[in-house]
């Protein structure tokens, strides 16, 4: 059996930096006056002290991050989003932020891209037992929620993905109850680690990663980090979430990364970091316990899986 470690420098890593940049420079020179600055500008974010990586956490390559995705809206195989997500039109795009709020309103994606952006390099742990390190660009979800002034009845935040089967071909199959839904408790949503990502690797978010706007909650299993969001709803009751609706015994509302609580069908004690041959131990709260463990003080994490 041949098992070869991929070369250290992948072609995609090179394109992510130089080629994209050169193409932009060329286009700016040739047609800069015709195209708006916004569509051309590569995204960049201020480095954040919240990108807490361990010495053995190395960012995965752009190729790995963009060709191995769970995004059932484009098919259930992890290679399918990269093949079919190109059909999704991400402009125009608005996100309704409403519910229990003093000033509910919609935000256009252009406005969201003008928020002060940060680079957050986070570990992502999938419930299936693999993980990556991804350099996201985004802003704290709390900064968006504060703008609509949540009222005292806002206990939970519900999120919804776009439902557009003409472009999201996976939605033509009823493998999940569309649209995809996720939710957070208010304190989880307001936590500084919780971000809305609009880009990665100094560029706008590729469609297969949840363009134009997705949630990233690094201490929870990946499916909590809902993609291509069109609605954020503040509410008093715990929202229904897609994987919990599909199989409540296997996927709970909290879904915090927890090596001690196994999935009913497989162990969560270890994970395979993409790019590594052998598994490594999974960390409690995906290694973010120092920042988030207090949110769950006194809770039975076996019951609240």
């Amino acid at each position: 059996m041949l098992i070869k470690k991929p070369a250290d420098i992948l072609p995609s890593e090179i394109t992510s930096e130089s080629v994209y940049f050169n193409r932009r420079a060329f286009m700016l020179g040739a047609a800069g006056l015709l195209l708006s600055q916004e569509t051309l500008a590569a995204l960049s974010g201020r480095k954040s002290p919240l990108s807490t990586l361990a010495p053995n956490d190395k960012a995965n390559s752009l190729k790995e991050i963009t060709s191995y995705n769970n995004f059932y809206e484009f098919g259930t195989d992890k290679s399918e989003p990269a093949l079919y997500a190109g059909a999704l039109k991400t402009r125009p795009w608005t996100v309704a932020v409403d519910g229990e709020a003093g000033k509910p309103r919609s935000f256009g994606i252009e406005e969201l891209l003008r928020q002060p952006l940060e680079e957050r390099i986070y570990r992502l742990r999938c419930v299936e037992g693999w993980s990556m390190v991804i350099p996201w660009i985004g802003f704290p979800l709390s900064s968006l929620l504060k703008q609509v002034q949540p009222n005292s009845r806002a206990k939970y935040v519900a999120f919804e993905t776009l439902q557009r089967p003409s472009e999201m071909t996976g939605q033509r199959s009823r493998v999940l109850d569309w649209p995809y839904r996720e939710g957070l408790r208010m304190d989880e949503a307001m936590h500084p680690l919780t971000i809305l990502a609009v880009g990665l690797y100094n560029d706008v978010l590729p469609n297969q990663n949840g363009a134009p706007l997705r949630l990233v909650v690094p201490w929870k299993y990946g499916f909590k980090s809902i993609k291509s969001i069109v609605r954020i709803h503040l509410q008093e009751t715990m929202p229904a979430t897609s994987w919990n609706m599909a199989n409540a015994r296997e996927y709970g509302f909290y879904s915090n990364v927890n090596p001690e609580v196994d999935h009913p069908r497989w162990s969560q004690a270890s994970e395979r970091r993409i790019g590594e041959l052998f598994k490594r131990k999974t960390q409690m709260f995906n290694g973010y316990g120092e920042q988030v463990a207090t949110l769950y003080r006194g809770m039975d994490l076996r019951k609240n899986y």
Binding site: M1, I3, E64, K78, L277
Partner: peptide, 17 residues
């Protein structure tokens, strides 16, 4: 399968194999 793993086209080679 060996070729796909050898050229590095399998992002998660162990799962793929």
């Amino acid at each position: 399968a060996s070729w796909i793993v050898y050229v590095g086209d399998a992002v998660n080679p162990v799962e793929f194999i």
